[in-house]
Nucleic acid binder design. Structure first.
Lengths: 155, 155
DNA sequence: ATAATCCTGACCATGACGGTCGGAATTTCC
DNA sequence: GGAAATTCCGACCGTCATGGTCAGGATTAT
């Protein structure tokens, strides 16, 4: 019952793209640098995100990736879904489950539970978008303890 | 983002124990038979459940396991927790997380999200207990299509 | 041309998972 | 006492997803 690093990394990368939104493409080399994530691995994930239609790529020297939509319009669910497929606690509640493949389908005591669980997870992920994510973060940083930082430095 | 078979099997076993509650111990051989699960594997899980205090064992010829509490008092969360440890989407939101081990803790944009997710998952699992599970099931079976069964047979 | 970048497929190591096995300990029953 | 039924335990194992690397090709700006 945990989120894969794949999804986690993917989301972190997407928040970087969200921050750069409207200011031209951001290279994954840059993402790898600020997020401290392995570049070669990010390349793979970026491929998934692109094929999923969440980002578009620009090749060549000043290339990189940029969101295809405004950050407010991209939910975390979409991101997770794109990089790691449908989130489904057990097979029999995934959308492409073929009715009948589980022999115990009729007498299964817990399927209802798993469906509720999936609904609940999906709901949480769906109702948060990238804009909120980066907004929450700036809130957090503004409230940061100990050393107050010059609040105009956001370069 | 899926529930392990371990947890799933564990829960299925527990529902069997719940059904047998008040009528003496139920052997895992029996559980394996009616749930079509591998006996040797169930033994392992039963060990976890016992060490977790959810069931107690009786050895010898008419031995087996029985719940230590009434089915209404055992939540699915407890069961899952016992067999597969804490459910936590990412490490930094588990209860035994040592603050600071994640270098990005301060600047993490998504921790709040993961915490909400964990809360949500826990809530769903906590608010369902074993009694409800087996009750839901009998409901389902009563509504079963095709062959209506005598609705007073609940032995 | 060169350097930066995306793109792709192949490869790989590790660990968790689901499962088996052998045998010891305990209890009941005959 | 012996046999059968059971829990108990530790060791073992094959498979698979995961997280990650690598080499090299394609594309584009300078």
């Amino acid at each position: 019952m945990r989120v894969s690093s794949k999804a986690h990394y993917g989301l972190r990368m997407m928040t970087e793209f969200a921050r750069a939104y409207g200011r031209g493409p951001l290279s994954i080399a840059e993402v790898a640098r600020v997020e401290h994530l392995p570049l070669a691995y990010l390349e793979q994930l970026a491929g998934l995100l692109r094929r999923g239609g969440l980002v578009e790529s620009t090749r060549g020297v000043h290339g990189g990736y940029s969101l295809t939509r405004s950050p407010e319009l991209i939910s975390v669910l979409e991101v997770v879904h794109t990089v790691e497929g449908e989130v489904s606690p057990v097979e029999c509640v995934s959308t492409d489950y073929v009715s009948g493949s589980c022999a115990r389908e009729g007498e299964c005591a817990s399927r209802g539970l798993w469906m509720r669980l999936k609904e609940s997870i999906d709901a949480v992920l769906r109702q948060t978008n990238l804009a909120e994510l980066i907004h929450d973060q700036s809130l957090l940083e503004a409230m940061a303890p100990a050393e107050p930082r010059p609040e105009t430095s956001h370069d």
